[in-house]
Design a protein around this nucleic acid. Structure first.
Lengths: 126, 126
DNA sequence: CATAGTAGTTTCTTATTGGTAAGTGGTAAC
DNA sequence: GTTACCACTTACCAATAAGAAACTACTATG
């Protein structure tokens, strides 16, 4: 009882494409910190965020990881990096317009996480 | 220019909760295969899916990984496992009702992946 | 001239992930 | 009685991810 697409092909024929698209997403956004960093920067678009500030406010991240993840996000045009010639040199990180396109992903993950926590608490009560 | 919540607290005060919720999600759904498996099973709710079928149709997954990931998904009540006393024993895997709550997550990831691929192709053309 | 702050990098080490390949135990066909 | 299929499991190994701590280089303050 396979569903049929508009063009007459079986829906299954497209499933691998869906899975491939998801793998593409996970290649770029996967790992322990990338989505956390993107969400953090999305929440702070109205603030000036530099390296130390992120390291202090994202719980548990090390300088090495932050540096590495920011580089990769920058390479994928999701985050911008701007060096400012201030007295002690500062570097401002911000989410790009393209980076904002990831918002629906972090949004669903935040919602699911909250939902899941409730489910767990409920399960413990019983 | 921090935004103010209904209760008068700064929006930032809630950000770490958001990040924690996301971490909860990533703990349960993170890794190379879990979301792929959930998406696969969501796409095949109308079919009977057993172990070998999944291994054949999810490109690149090994028996070890599939076994391990299915166990973890089962422990989190996202996937059901039903042994059938057929001639050669078969085991049917299916997504649970709770597992279906992950659909918005995989949906946004599929969409973003397709979007991203277009962006990459566009970038290469130029 | 010691301390502290910015922005990382480097080194070393451990933990986790993931892959290959072989093995187990059962049924059934040829 | 050998091959094949199902559903895994186990052992072994390599690669990657991740963390801790120290270090570089520069500026500024006391």
């Amino acid at each position: 009882m396979a569903k049929i697409n508009d063009n007459g092909t079986l829906r299954e024929a497209n499933c691998s494409e869906e899975l491939m698209a998801m793998r593409d997403s996970l290649d770029v956004l996967g790992g322990k910190w990338k989505l956390i960093i993107l969400r953090f920067l999305t929440n702070r678009t109205h603030q000036v965020i530099n390296f130390k500030k992120m390291q202090r406010e994202i719980d548990g991240i090390s300088a090495k990881m932050l540096s590495k993840e920011l580089k990769e996000l920058e390479n994928n045009l999701l985050v911008s990096r701007t060096t400012q010639q201030t007295k002690p040199i500062t570097v401002v990180y911000a989410i790009t317009e393209y980076g904002k396109s990831v918002l629906p992903v972090t949004e669903t993950l935040v919602n699911w996480g909250l939902h899941h926590r409730e489910k767990i608490i409920e399960a413990i009560k019983k």
